[in-house]
Amino acid sequence: MTLQALQMLEALLLLATLRTVGAHRLADYIGGFILQSVVLAALAVLLAASSGAADLVVVAAMTLGAKVYLVPRILRRVAAELPVERGVRSMLGLPASILAAIGLSVLAFLGTSTLAESVGAQAGSFGVSLSMVLIGLFLITVRRHVVAQLVGLLTMENGTFAGTLALAPRMPWVIEFAILLDILVAVVVMGLLITLIHREVATADTAALRQLRG
């Protein structure tokens, strides 16, 4: 029963990630990230209920506070300050992006199936986690909007978090807290930098940032 619920949530996590890949408007990127984080918090609560580890509830609460409330708020504020551009430009079209992302997931699942057995974890969890890391990396490389790239970065981190939940659920929550704090600071700082850049070059398109090479 719990196992089924767990697998459902993990499938939902992957779908939420694909949602960001298929997104066109910035709001959808942020929405996809929120969905990911909500599912992650639910996963943590479910694991807490099934294993009786109370600290996972703390982790879930921290996730909700930081990733569902604070980070999206900052992202929206940064996005609001940027000029209204018609959607996020990309080096790869949306259908091709989704295909590529699915390809990356398949790769991740194939690559982790034997490894997962050796630690006695569910092959699925490990695969979902690595898929998210790869898809996040993919978003950063092909999307040209700064906020979209930031969401890619957050997706990578969420993927790692999903992995620790599945493989090492009893990791001390202090570390989790430090990591969340770090991410929060990172988002604030990068948001600040984005607004500075915007004031200087009047665009959020990273293709404009191509002066330094060689």
Partner: peptide
């Protein structure tokens, strides 16, 4: 600023 963005990303 460009260097800083690349650096942080």
């Amino acid at each position: 600023l460009e260097a800083a963005w690349k650096y942080v990303l």
